[in-house]
Design a protein around this nucleic acid. Sequence first.
RNA 1: GACCUGGUAGCUCAGUUGGUAGAGCACCUCCCUUUUAAGGAGGUGGUCCUGGGUUCGAGCCCCAGCCAGGUCACCA
Length: 564
Amino acid sequence: MQLSPLEEIRRASLSKLRTLGINPYPAEAFKTTATIAGICKSFEDFEGKEVVLAGRMMSRRIMGKASFAELKDASGRMQIYLNRDELCSDEEAVLYNTVFKKLLDIGDIIGIQGTVFKTQVGEYSVNVKTLTVLAKSLKPLPVVKTDAEGKSHDAFSDPEQRYRQRYVDLIVNDQVKDTFIKRTKITNAIREFFNERGYLEVETPILQPIPGGAAARPFTTHHNALNMPLYLRIANELYLKRLIVGGFEAVYEFAKDFRNEGMDRTHNPEFTVMELYVAYKDYHWMMEMTESLLEKVALDTNGSTEVPIGEHRVSFKAPYPRVPILEAIKTHTGYDVAGMDEPGLRDVCRSLKIEVDETMGVGKLIDELFGEACEHHYIQPTFITDYPKEMSPLTKEHRDNPALTERFELMVNGKELANAYSELNDPIDQRARFEAQLKLSEKGDDEAMFIDQDFLRALEYGMPPTSGIGIGIDRLVMFMTNNASIQEVLFFPQMKPERKAPAVSEEAKGILELLKTAEKWVLNELKAQSGLSNKKWDKALKELTRNNLAKVSKTDEVLEVILV
RNA sequence: GACCUGGUAGCUCAGUUGGUAGAGCACCUCCCUUUUAAGGAGGUGGUCCUGGGUUCGAGCCCCAGCCAGGUCACCA
């Protein structure tokens, strides 16, 4: 492995620590007595008292016999003060002069014991009496400095590196950590809300023999023992409904779903959806539930129902307007497409310059119209309701209009945040809808739903009238934390693999073959034998020595090459 | 998938007509006992994303590729 000079220095320090009898990776637990945030929050209670803290050293300011450093624990950052004569009693002051000043580095994890005080400039600090090395860091950490105005300098900002090495991102960019803390606050708020109402959190299969419940291309895998294909779920809807058939009256699941489609800043191949099903309810009830849920989520995570999202301020205060989709299309395009047939819709799309193709049925065409012409208008939370039957194969027919369904999508900031129905529980109707989907797929729609016979069998036993909802958790987190990219709210967003170290080149392989023919070679003879140009020779030999395949040594004024 | 932009030191970035690879921070040596983007003096550090090509000479020009971000398309 090729080490940078900075890494060499840190490894040398590591050995020196061991020579001094200090284990750089001790096994014992290190018992702390306080947290940094706790001290800063009630400084008066801690001032003059002794504390034990542990964390990562983030910066250092050495001034001869005294030094300041910044310690970071899970709760925050705080300055520590190290004074040679207070830290050490021995003549040499090894702990201060050697260990702290020479052998420790930014990024090392240390434990300290000392007293809390305030510096002359007024900064909360700990005067360190004992210092313990807890883990030596061998890779240099990017140093992000913040000035008096709170402006960051030399921020670790390259998105590729931030996502690939999220651990570094989390260490040096505090606001990144805050986003993920908020993410957990959001899911906690939702769980609290549901658990208070007695809803049951459940787990259903991720590996499914039939990928149902949504329209999307699945990831495929194979079970060896059963010798059968399996799919990573694109939704868990059909399994949760089976549980409603089984007699649970309210179940929910935070589900990782997987869709084998394009990636962009709002789509990751694996993402999280919270699905909830409640028996004896309809989609009107579900809208009210959703409003109060999101109001609580906003309050719990941001302390306010009003949240900044990009250029906008979005209010999650209930209630939200209800707008039937056909009305939305009428408002934003001027066309009344209610009851319109496929050719008619296609004409409307054409006149609005919306691209359509032959595989699109009535449902997809209306979906397209709404998506292109209307969706982006709904910044404040709005329920778009009553979608046409063709685009909602799992939804109950509308009580007043057989062409529509009892479905809503919640739009926020021009994007879909949730999708909910009065669930279709008529098994005969459901079978017919699946068959219509089958026709679509024969027409070339590769996203039409598969028929799940076991799900139909379950419905035939009778499912109570039920309302269900799916909420995109990643999107919700993006809204609540004002992030425009899904990658910012996933710890480890999907990335293409990093380029692997280049394989040994042809030239280097040739030299290796020559090296194998003798115990050692005089460098110039080997070079002549290889028949390589100066440039290629140099490059190939450097490659070999760098990868520790060959070694060059000097004896009696001759350079020799040996195989390692 | 198409187009645009980018890839240079550990980090953030300069790099002129193609002519010995630079800065700040970090790091190393030295000075400095309440500093704080600490300061002062000196120094080390490079696969210029990869592979070809043009050229006396390429970080720079040309071709191909890899990775990322953005826009669009596809897609919830």
